[in-house]
């Protein structure tokens, strides 16, 4: 089963809408609360990245009985140095974004921490896709 959610540009008020919908859906499927929460946190971080850096994008959840895969795609500037981006506390977010309480440089590391598999596909000038896999058992 596939679910798609759109992430609007600079929509901080509604940031997290996709992760909340996805969380409710997974609860109804009977997934364990801790797994649901990991997915919700990872998706939320992805949504935030998507709207801060990516200029909006899409969250696609692929749901199977064994694995839930969450892809967060944007068509933003891409990440020139993935290794650096994965370091805790490293961020390219603007002062304005930081003033809103975001851009602490924890997004990607947190997404890696909560997921079972983690992959970044990125190309400078084209965009970034983060793929998180969550095992259901």
């Amino acid at each position: 089963m596939e679910k798609r959610y759109t992430v609007e540009v600079d929509d901080f008020e509604r940031a997290g809408a996709a992760s909340i919908s996805l969380k409710e859906l997974l609860q109804k499927l009977g997934l364990a609360p801790e797994t649901v929460r990991r997915i919700a946190i990872g998706t939320y971080e992805g949504e935030i990245n998507c709207l801060i850096h990516g200029g909006g994008g899409v969250v696609i959840a692929d749901i199977t009985p064994h694995v839930i895969t969450v892809r967060i795609e944007d068509h933003g500037p891409g990440i020139p140095d993935v290794e650096k981006a994965m370091q805790e506390g490293w961020s390219t977010a603007s002062e304005e974004i930081r003033a809103k309480g975001f851009g602490a440089g924890m997004g990607l590391p947190n997404m890696k921490k909560v997921s079972d598999t983690f992959r970044i596909e990125t190309e400078v000038g084209k965009g970034t896709t983060v793929i998180m896999g969550f095992s259901c058992v």
């Binding site: 089963m1 609860q27 109804k28 499927l29 009977g30 997934l31 749901i63 009985p65």
Partner: peptide
């Protein structure tokens, strides 16, 4: 105790069908 609303079906696959 956790008391979430019961899933749409007892089995994950069946619950997915109901979700569709």
């Amino acid at each position: 105790k956790a008391k979430p609303a019961p899933p749409l079906a007892g089995d994950f696959g069946a619950a997915m069908e109901k979700m569709e």
